[in-house]
Design a protein around this nucleic acid. Structure first.
Length: 395
DNA sequence: TAGCCGTGGCC
DNA sequence: TGGCCAAGGCT
């Protein structure tokens, strides 16, 4: 995609050389005055910039900072990350979300050790080959760590550009990103590409925000076509999100005679991969196996607080099937937990059960002593279940 | 391509 | 409360 495409196919009015120069100067002067003081802005170490960029994916700056500091202390360089233990790494990442980011980073660090002699690659095409690094992160590292004039197009940058150039493309549609990349290439400052990208992002994060945007406050308003034409309320064009699917689960809090609880390491792929969770049953699975699916009907958004003996028998049969342990579950439901993922809404009912000690358990399971919780990487939903279980008032 | 993949904050 | 949003990438 070139200038001609941008102008003819997408109706974007590009700037002449002088305007482009003026824009760079205005934007970077603002950035030099107002840029946020962030830990990863103290360095040009590609490793540290990489760590920060991965953590910042779909995650707010304030959330990232403490995780970043701890990460750099624990894994100060590529080699230490490549040699890390995945369970340790996930424990450090616990609570940050999108856990595949951590596992991909570890794999990428090993790639760098093997394929690049432990030196972070400089070529954007090589950078993008690393696991977990896409077009945005590749451009961010190339421009910030290696001063290459590469676009780093994230949500901020698309929003800013959509407003400045009145771009009528859906910024939620990933295929449109290439248009914003081409546009960025046209205006990026070749002398300060990393600062240019970060200035655009800072502008999007602090002034050209999704909500409560006031173009009067923008340092680049005189370059902003939608401000000059008073069309800024139309931009950016963004399609709406899909609704999260509702799912209902039973969480099984299975205690042995020593007071330990059964926890299970989740599969290596999919939701919360390789993290630890109490055994959970999707209510749909239980319904399908049941002679009386109606008994599991969730009425007015809630399961009954006391199960009948037949339902308990079904749970025990399911548990025997999947975990090969004879068990005794209580009829009383111990509490209810709601947890929202980006694409799922879970409603979880807590059911307590007992098994005899000393029996063999499946490979991916362990007995968890309540005082050893810090030894495992747990997702938030597990913490919520735990808290609710020990605080019955929350039901 | 579109669905999957977490969590917290905001209104 | 529910929907949107936050320095995206993988499949």
């Amino acid at each position: 995609m070139d200038r001609k495409d941008l102008e003819e196919k997408y109706g974007i009015d590009l700037w002449d050389d002088q305007t482009r120069q003026d824009f760079r100067e205005t934007l970077l002067a603002w950035y030099d005055q107002e840029k946020r003081d962030l830990p990863w802005r103290q360095t040009k170490d590609p490793y540290k910039i990489w760590v920060s960029e991965i953590m910042l994916q779909q995650t707010q700056v304030a959330t990232v900072i403490p995780y970043y500091e701890k990460f750099i202390q624990t894994y100060p360089d590529i080699k230490s990350l490549a040699e890390s233990n995945e369970d340790d790494l996930l424990r450090l990442w616990q609570g940050l979300g999108y856990y595949s980011r951590a596992r991909n980073m570890r794999q990428a660090a090993q790639q760098i050790m093997e394929d690049y002699g432990g030196h972070f690659p400089k070529d954007p095409k090589e950078i993008k080959k690393l696991k977990g690094i896409g077009p945005y992160t590749s451009g961010a590292i190339a421009s910030m760590a290696f001063d290459q004039a590469e676009p780093a197009v994230d949500g901020n940058l698309m929003r800013v550009l959509a407003r400045v150039f009145e771009v009528d493309l859906d910024v939620k549609k990933s295929s449109n990103r290439k248009v914003f990349e081409a546009l960025t290439k046209e205006i990026i400052d070749p002398d300060r590409p990393g600062d240019f990208n970060q200035a655009m992002m800072d502008l999007g994060a602090t002034i050209s925000t999704p909500k409560n945007y006031n173009p009067e406050l923008s340092p680049i308003k005189e370059f902003d076509q939608s401000y000059l034409n008073d069309t800024w309320r139309r931009y950016p064009v963004a399609s709406s999100n899909k609704k999260a699917k509702k799912e209902v689960y039973l969480a099984l809090l299975v205690k042995d005679k020593d007071g330990d609880y059964l926890v299970e390491k989740r599969p290596a792929k999919g939701l919360l991969a390789n993290l630890w969770l109490f055994p959970i049953i999707n209510l749909e699975d239980l319904k399908q196996a049941s002679q009386d699916p109606e008994s599991w009907q969730v009425k007015q958004g809630a399961l009954q607080e006391v199960l009948d003996q037949d339902q308990v028998n079904q749970v025990q049969a399911y548990f025997k099937d999947h975990y090969h342990l004879p068990s005794q579950f209580n009829q009383q439901v111990q509490g209810q937990v709601s947890h929202a993922f980006s694409h799922l809404n879970w409603s979880i009912y807590l059911l307590e059960g007992q098994v005899d000690s000393g029996q063999a358990i499946p490979d991916q399971c362990e007995w968890l002593s309540p005082d050893q919780r810090e030894a495992y990487a747990f997702p938030k939903v597990q913490e919520k279940i735990w808290e609710t279980y020990f605080n019955p008032s929350l039901f």
